[in-house]
Design a binder for these strands. Structure first.
Lengths: 290, 290
DNA sequence: TCCCATTACGGGTCACGTAACAATC
DNA sequence: GATTGTTACGTGACCCGTAATGGGA
């Protein structure tokens, strides 16, 4: 039963290198830290410091190990409190995240059919945030373009997204009816920011393309009206009321034009998320909605 | 920064189910536990208990999660202290374990060639104790008949052990010069206890055999003198001074007659163990020392 | 002279145990 | 009446900060 404050002091010392700076960082006085480290050594029954000379101390190898382990333990403790708090909250809310906007758009459209209120976090999650976000109960569910299987979490395939283009009806593209990414080489597009993995796919698959990124949907739709540049849509992202502009949909037939999505959730929250997943599967739009 | 005592109380409550039993288990008074759990709830900002009625409380789902996580955290803390203590000790001693006696016997024979003093633990370790024993710095090195690769530890192949038999020179076995396990069906043997994986190998490979297990080496050698029963030896286990009895070695030619050994050690203690490993490799006896 | 680590000392906090209370079986 | 959980109250331990000491650059 070690007082975690002592461990904090140790970790801070490992970072700063002197007791006084440690004290300052933790808003304590030097004597407190001195006593703290003495007590820690006493409780562990082990020397952690080289007390060379008379007013200089440093960690010995045992101390370095202890500091590293202490740091891990403190992290674990933070995780514990966060987990518990998130779990308690999860009794009343249902937070959904994603690494791409598509699945969120579909969820938005069907959430009113669910008995529980879900909250969709429109801020996309990065690849490496997905698992921690779910494991810590911060999110009850995240959508990902990758599959994960861990002790705590499982993935379930929910469907795929495919792009198509909305092009001016008089453009060359419109007349083709269907294109590959290669055939789009050099073209300029209007594109939304925050499209997750699609950004990388478009940029690498279409040679020499120019992407005019727009921050929000409203400025994109605005620009769409007054420009002839083609704009991307997908089976998950098309206006519910058809736009009355002079544009026609053009298929993109390309093996790279596909993102498979998985729902990731904690196994112990499976019951909570299944209704939403089934609703998603049931309402998943087909490739090309026109 | 949660007081670990509160976590202990929570864990104990999860086990006992009542606050009073919790208090008893931890040698505290009930009011202390009551206040402790109230404080824990307050610090986490979360309800952990169903305070139904008036004198009965139980964990709610959040509390159950918290208790589980707290238990894990406390285990981690125990591990930390043990690791640090073991590590500190490992500065002065070099403890070696094994899941089979063979490598220990060889180590015994060569340990005087090492500059450092090694301590060989003759109590064999079970399969599932090996990794924890090394990861916690309790042992600096263990020998295992299985390979392991983890974040912290690595395995290094050091050699193999092979059995042969010492048989009465007038016996049928002695005349054959070489046998398979199958051919030993129904035979009775004198066998030492504490031979690790070999026990399982012998018992499953030799049909209808009878094994007369002896606890210690002295009673085995004693019995060996006065009986004609065959006894097992190996390239790692044969007397340094030849026994002057009426026995001759008999090979066992059988694919199952082989145990590969690996040395397992923490990567951060590699420097410490390498001299011993190299010495072992250099002095590893060949299959059949006669 | 400044910085660092350690020891001495006094005070305030806080967590504990005892005691008392309420409720349920 | 026995057991269980909670509240009230006083005390003592302990930990902190201030102050003082000693050794180095």
């Amino acid at each position: 039963m070690i007082d975690p404050r002592l461990l904090q002091e140790l970790v801070a010392f490992a970072k700063t290198g002197t007791l006084s700076q440690t004290a300052e960082e933790l808003h304590l006085t030097q004597p407190t830290v001195t006593r703290g480290m003495q007590k820690l050594e006493q409780e562990l029954g082990v020397a952690l410091f080289n007390r060379t000379g008379n007013n200089k101390i440093s960690l010995n190898t045992t101390g370095q190990l202890a500091a590293k382990e202490a740091s891990r333990l403190l992290d674990m403790e933070d995780e514990l409190t966060e987990k518990v708090r998130n779990f308690a909250e999860s009794q009343t809310r249902f937070l959904v995240g994603s690494d791409a906007p598509g699945p969120l758009l579909l969820s938005e459209r069907i959430e009113n059919k669910l008995p529980v209120k879900v909250k969709l976090d429109q801020n996309l999650l990065a690849e490496d945030e997905l698992l921690p976000a779910v494991e810590s109960y911060r999110y009850q569910l995240v959508f990902s373009s990758h599959e994960y299987q861990t002790d705590l979490c499982e993935s379930r395939y929910i469907g795929y997204e495919q792009l198509f283009l909305m092009c001016d009806k008089n453009s060359d593209l419109a007349k083709k009816g269907s294109v590959t990414f290669q055939e789009l080489a050099g073209v300029s597009f209007l594109v939304l920011q925050g499209i997750g993995p699609w950004k990388q796919i478009k940029e690498s698959a279409i040679p020499n393309a120019h992407f005019l990124y727009q921050d929000d949907l409203s400025s994109l739709t605005e620009l769409t009206k007054y420009s002839q540049l083609p704009v991307f849509r997908s089976n998950l992202s098309f206006p519910s009321h058809p736009e009355n502009d002079d544009r026609v949909p053009v298929r993109i037939d390309d093996p790279k034009n596909r993102l498979d999505f998985y729902a990731i959730y904690r196994k112990d929250q499976k019951k909570m998320v299944m209704p939403l997943l089934e609703l998603l599967s049931k309402n998943w739009p087909e490739d090309f909605p026109y």
